[in-house]
Design a protein around this nucleic acid. Structure first.
Lengths: 149, 149
DNA sequence: TATTGTTATACTCTATAACTATA
DNA sequence: TATAGTTATAGAGTATAACAATA
């Protein structure tokens, strides 16, 4: 049996994903970036200079898609694509100064948003929320893992 | 000052959105639908037969996008596009039997997922989670409302 | 023979602008 | 004059398949 409250709460979670997504997209649009491109910048920031193959796996897309994303980011000055130092088949993608500054700004925004969301939540409720959230994530991971081939 | 725990929890929320999205997309792909098309089917299910203009506002996209979505859904048998009974400029979009069945199946999935996620969460923790979640949504709505022109 | 990335091609979602038919 | 929807065009993200260069 499924209680109606559960459905309402799932709806809220889904709305949260929508609102978060809209917020982020609007924000990114203002600085001339898209989600996919920001994702690439983010990974480059974490990993340092990368082969495109590595980025393809990190983002979960095909190499062809990485070619297109890097084309766009290079044309707008966020990354460079250069010859890889040891593997002459490969390209090496590196953040420019502008790209690094952008990655830093994104990290700052992330921190600021976390503060805005949670600063006024009492510690005990925060703990509870975090614990339930962790449980949901685990369940979801198990569900989706099960439905993969 | 921003506590590191807040950032970790925000990360979990973001991961939740990613996992939920991936789960849904994979699921929809299996029945030959995309998110945008499902969104349209969902709204049609709630509202009954609609003018395209109404759907454009409901989905927050331009009329041109609705034309494309309805084209696709009509070609695959989920909806029909017919002359509007009273306004001869307008088209009326209606779910077919197949579309209605799909809308029903989506609602069932939604209910089932809610049960899988929350059935084993104790009532008091569920209350707490739901309350905090509601607070987050409100804050986010206020934040995004402020950044709109 | 296997890997890396590109070219070629195609599909979906989305947008703006110009236009037609109707209100 | 305003509204409903389409045609035309464009751009982003994604995919598969064929191919070149290199390992």
């Amino acid at each position: 049996m499924v209680e109606p409250r559960w459905e309402a709460t799932l709806d809220r979670i889904l709305e949260l994903t929508v609102v978060l997504n809209r917020d982020m997209t609007a924000h990114l649009e203002a600085i001339g970036l898209t989600e996919a491109r920001v994702h690439l910048i983010w990974e480059l920031g974490r990993r340092g200079p990368c082969k495109q193959q590595v980025l393809a796996e990190a983002l979960g897309v095909t190499p062809r898609t990485i070619t297109a994303l890097v084309d766009g980011l290079a044309a707008t000055g966020f990354v460079t694509r250069e010859a890889h130092p040891t593997d002459r088949r490969a390209a090496q993608v590196t953040l420019t100064a502008q790209g690094t500054a952008t990655a830093q700004a994104l990290a700052d925004d992330h921190r600021r948003l976390a503060g805005q969301l949670f600063a006024d939540v009492p510690a005990d409720r925060f703990e509870c929320f975090d614990a339930v959230l962790g449980g949901l994530l685990e369940k979801l991971r198990r569900l989706t893992a099960g439905s993969r081939r």
